[in-house]
Design a binder for these strands. Structure first.
Lengths: 272, 272
DNA sequence: GGTGTCGATCTCAATAAGTGAGATTCCCGA
DNA sequence: TCGGGAATCTCACTTATTGAGATCGACACC
């Protein structure tokens, strides 16, 4: 995870830090601007840029600026094509045609974050904020929380110790016992329902396992809040739990084809 | 460009080289495998992996392997949201509803390659091989060739010198004069038609300019070959040229909103 | 909840890099 | 062909990287 501050400053670290500067609000940087931001000389800045440019992670933009490069788009395609979760889940989701479902999405656990990896818009009138690539903390939103609830005990304990404050803020428990109990309740329920991320919709998420007792992702069905009755919520919950179970079953028996050297699941560590 | 072999071996270079190993056929690597492949010691291999892991470019996979990381998916979303070409073109393409169009796609020029950056399936029965992230050489396929034909003179000349052989193989000209003439013909026609990439469809591509006389991308309309008459080809050509022109016009008058510090077009260099 | 097994990190001396300032080359538009 | 500016090169100097082994710690099993 690139969250925590680093102690040592290797040169590769410093070069890759340049990537962090390319945010949505500042998608283009000139070398002059980078020099000021990095507090480095012209030569050094060009060296960092060259490394990333040669790797295809940066590309030249208009006005002698640099922007994120083509390699990223290319690698994203590679991930999509080699991710067994998507390989299995997408065909299964295509068969799910209930008119109750306004949108389907899949979120994956990476480290201590949850990343949206697939979003499908079914209801043309629904307003979606979810997109592939959006990142959420483990405590925020139904897709995250149902994953959080199914973490193995030691990971959940570690997570609590490191994030007790955020957990309390999110009303998931004031103490470890509180937290454990509320997570237990979620597990028993089998799904998590909420409108936290997007207040115009209701989302219901169920866990996906790539190994017995190892959660890796969650499936969410979403529907416009204004047109959703309580009975429909219950029906959607049943649907999403059943679909997530089917995906998990397939995933458990998944064996890679083609010349791959092994499974391609992500099994995050929850290190401090 | 990440094509040509490098002379110097900086440590960041070596770390980023690890990314190259993660191909579609080998999406997961253990450290042991990487050690053999890189011919490095265990400590060094772990150091490279750690740098990429901390940057989010790698993630841990099942069986103590590593796979491409969440940061890539995240950065891809950032590119999509900050690319003025997509910002402008997508709403315009949504209004184009001709039933002749089986698929729409946009390809962008990056260096000496052309990258598919957007693909939309309109005809549910069409079989598409094109996806966001697919890369093509500048001489292969209609989307590439119409870009090639509109390169500025010195870039075209440079490209010819460096790729005379490939150009001859692609029947684009045996000599510089030949090549120049065939490119001139394409420019005059205004579009390029072909079935090279996917033999089951016919694709027609028109150039998109982000600056007068600076090509940056191409728009392609695609239709199943078996159901396409010559008259329909002509009509599709008109449509795609008109749409690409509209996009170019918008692009020329584009001024970034939000706190962006400048335009975010890619203006590739064609260096040797 | 305790304990064992690897995967991952740390330590330290030797080695081979990265760094900065300025000159230079090369790209690209007229 | 030429000019302006971006990108690279040179070289002395400094600092990080490397490799082998010891150690740490996360995770699985009991």
């Amino acid at each position: 995870m690139a969250r925590k501050p680093e102690h040592k400053q290797s040169s590769a670290d410093k070069a890759l830090k340049v990537l962090d500067l390319f945010t949505e609000d500042f998608p283009a940087w000139t070398v002059e601007m980078l020099m000021k931001e990095l507090d480095a000389t012209r030569a050094t800045t060009y060296r960092y840029v060259k490394v990333l440019y040669d790797a295809g992670l940066l590309a030249t933009g208009a006005g002698s600026s640099y922007v994120l490069g083509p390699r990223i788009i290319q690698l994203d395609r590679q991930i999509q094509r080699s991710d067994p979760l998507l390989q299995i889940a997408l065909p299964m989701l295509e068969e799910e045609k209930s008119p109750l479902i306004g949108s389907k999405s899949i979120s994956s656990l990476y480290g201590d974050q949850v990343l949206s990896v697939y979003v499908e818009k079914c209801d043309p009138d629904i307003f979606l904020t979810m997109q592939r690539g959006r990142v959420f903390p483990l405590v925020y939103g139904a897709p995250s929380r149902i994953i959080l609830a199914h973490l193995p005990p030691y990971q959940m304990k570690n997570f609590y110790i490191a994030n007790a404050e955020d957990i309390a803020c999110a009303h998931l428990g004031e103490t470890w016992e509180d937290f454990r109990t509320s997570m237990q309740r979620l597990r028993k329920q089998g799904y998590c329902i909420g409108s936290e991320i997007n207040p115009t919709v209701v989302g219901i998420s169920a866990p996906i396992f790539h190994d017995k007792s190892a959660v890796s992702a969650s499936l969410s069905y979403v529907r416009r809040l204004e047109i959703t009755s309580d009975a429909q919520k219950a029906e959607l919950a049943e649907l999403v739990v059943a679909a997530a179970d089917r995906i998990s079953k397939q995933l458990l028996s998944y064996r890679p084809e083609r010349g791959t050297r092994g499974p391609v699941f992500t099994t995050p560590r929850m290190s401090v």
